[in-house]
Amino acid sequence: MDPLMIGIIIKIVLVLAIVSALAGFGTYLERKVLAYMQRRIGPAHVGPLGLLQIVADGIKLLTKEDIIPQNANRIIFMIAPAVTAATAFIALSAVPLFPTFTIPTSFPLIGGAIVPSTIADINIGILFMLGVMGSGLYGPLLAGMAQANKWGILGSARTAVQFLSYEVITGLSLLAPIMLVGSLSLLDFNNAQTGGVGSWILWQQPVAFILFLIAGFAETNRTPFDLLEHEAEIVSGYATEYSGMRWGMFFIGEYANMITISIMASLIFVGGYAPLGFIPGWIAIILKISFFFFLMLWVRASWPHVRPDQLMWFCWKVLMPIAVINVMITGIVVMI
């Protein structure tokens, strides 16, 4: 078989395995980080440093009874979580994670396979990712509407409003860097920033960066914008009636999305996997992704969340004008 094909399959398996494992690990990290920030120690009893807590949680989720409410639309109710998880992973397929490399030939079976940096090296990677992540909206939306629960309905209504609104911001904020780089391929973005810290698009587009981050928080349903399943107001929003692994899929999807957003932020604004001085590229990107992931937890520990009306106000009256102005200024600068 084509060494590239084998490499792609290997990469798919790797990405699926690693990211879903990371999603689980993410929950552990989140609990730990939140705990430390609140002067606690978080999970500590299961396994060394409480690491096996992930396994325990997994076992719990898998063995829990899968309850489908009596009046729910069964099929949609069952499909919805899969939509969330699937879209999250599909989005990752266009992400270049680390440089292309060849597996040494001494390796049995898969020796010589070329593992590409991107699973699907489509030249409109950014557009693809935005599109797939946007379709991730269907997961919560359908879940909430299918479960015959008023909190679910409220949750899905909020989902639609929030995701659709903030997609505008994401798109507009990325328009400016795209205009600078002149490509929709993430590889091109990476390549455009290989000149060390100084060449990061962050410095040219700080406003776009901040807008992207804010919109990213909103799209991944993170504090301060976690209104979709806000316990104090709507029980658990679209996830109210879910339990066991179906609920777990929403969870994995959310964490996969967090990773995706972190990766996008690293690639588009802070130099991607270009080597950073003495730090090799793959370590550099892991550090960057980790930072953005950590930032989400950090913000969760520090800030309260906003009201739904503030959320909308913020989106349409503050962020969108700024984004449009930013695009215009960038356009003028590029023209000149």
Binding site: V33, A35, Y36, M37, Q38, R39, R40, I41, W298, V299, A301, S302, W303
Partner: peptide, 14 residues
Amino acid sequence: IGLWVTIREMFKTL
């Protein structure tokens, strides 16, 4: 400041 407070506490705890 909020971010600073939380990160400070995290380091203290850790």
